[in-house]
Design a protein around this nucleic acid. Structure first.
Lengths: 257, 257
DNA sequence: ATGGTAACTTAGGTCAGACCGTTAGACCAT
DNA sequence: ATGGTCTAACGGTCTGACCTAAGTTACCAT
């Protein structure tokens, strides 16, 4: 039966299916919970039922329930506490998860430092313009404090931290959460990558401080165009200095070899 | 023994400890594996040992091992296949994880569409400039194909997909993986959010098509400045149109209420 | 009354062992 | 060649137990 001829020869039947996905139980639970959380029905801090309660409700095993919760935890949707009155609490995802994934992307793909600086050149001037428009008094205070920390000659780590604080502060002053998350990720990556390079000397520090102050000034005066211009110069200059230092490193490495 | 006087009264001993963190076993394993993967020792596709083998090696339970693997899977560092010859395979994290976290950020924080478009205004002109510099023949082909797909009057979904393809194509032509990853995230988010809004009519389509062609042209001619200028106009115009549509929606919603 | 502490309770964290479902590969029958 | 069958090697799920962290409560000594 059904022994028809196959005209084209390629396939005997006209029907064809694409690869199908069979979701895992833990994914199903995770998706369900994620949708409920993202729908906004639960306020930040709302506790999910205890694991054993979820087991009863879903009729899944505790293993499965726990994997689902773990997924949500990694995605930054819940925070899990142990002990009595512990459990999974709803969290509003912040910039950290974006930052983490960007950091993974950068490390995992062995991305060149130049790409990082290039990306900063795209984001930071724009952030500066937003900051000039939207900055609050508190934002300005954060920027000033970061600059003061830079002025205080400290260790390399302290300088780098203060540097990051200022740049992230500019992004925060722009009050755009997406850009803010992106800048956190970039900064974190640049911080770790620059920690090894040794091109940060006193000159670099004082140049950075001067640049930061001039940008901060423009932001304070709500002069968007000036903020963009100065930030562009600063970031571009920093990128070129880093590139030159990188060249030197490569060269001396070559000489070593 | 050691019953000294305690002058300050605050503490009997000089040793003092800060709050300590007791990491979970699964996190320890996950961190260890993540470091090994990110160090680049394993090529894409390298299989990790089977779960039961990891149990033997680490002397942890299978539950713990599985949770660690699940963490890495969510972070996009491994891909887990079931069945014989299955297991966890090393994956180079791509833009998808960035895209996912951005999408979560946007949905979770109820971020306004305007923030999204604002972010595009920061990224896309810069991507266009990079594209003008770095585009290959293949990149241009992708852009042309996306434009053709837009020219073909299709369903709303087809239009949106082609639209996304073109914008992502520009980012790809810039050959900066970070910006590329960010654009994928933004595009995915914008895609889903625009799917509901009903402001895409024939006029919007033809305007977008024209703008895309002019930007593509500048990229083809490697005219960076023109690419930036035209992309700025396009994105800004689109953002304003979307904002107007959003206003209309809000107003009609108010009238409904 | 006050302060400490022991016991209890509720929650997540870990473990051991079993069984199920899926898949690749080998082998055989048609 | 096509399709069936068996087997081994995987991850996926389940059960049930115990450990550990952290609030609550009751009790006891001062």
């Amino acid at each position: 039966m059904t022994s028809e001829s196959t005209p084209t020869g390629a396939s005997r039947s006209a029907i064809s299916l694409s690869p199908m996905e069979v979701p895992k139980a833990s994914d199903v639970l995770a998706n369900e919970l994620r949708e409920r959380i993202l729908s906004g029905d639960y306020v930040e801090g709302t506790p999910l039922p205890p694991e054993r309660e979820l087991v009863v409700q879903t009729r899944m095993s505790r293993t499965t329930v726990r994997e689902a919760l773990r997924i949500l935890e990694v995605q930054g949707l819940v925070r899990i506490k142990a002990g009595r009155a512990g459990g999974a609490f709803v969290t509003t995802p912040g910039g950290e998860s974006v930052a983490d994934s960007i950091a993974l992307l950068i490390r995992g793909r062995q991305i060149r430092l130049s790409s990082l600086h290039q990306t900063r050149e795209a984001l930071e001037p724009f952030c500066a313009r937003l900051a000039a428009t939207n900055r609050t008094a508190h934002d300005l205070q954060v920027l000033d404090e970061a600059n003061e920390a830079i002025a205080t000659k400290g260790t390399l780590e302290e300088f780098l931290q203060a540097n990051v604080d200022w740049h992230v502060g500019v992004a925060a002053a722009g009050h755009n959460e997406i850009l803010y998350g992106m800048m956190i990720g970039l900064s974190k990556a640049i911080y770790t990558l620059t920690n090894n390079e040794g091109f940060v000397d006193d000159e670099v520090r004082s140049i950075a401080l001067k640049a930061h102050r001039s940008v901060t000034d423009a932001i304070r005066k709500q002069d968007g165009d000036a903020a963009v211009r100065r930030m562009e110069r600063h970031v571009h200059g920093y990128a070129e200095a880093a590139a030159r230092a990188d060249d030197r490193t490569s060269i001396s490495l070559d000489q070593d070899a």
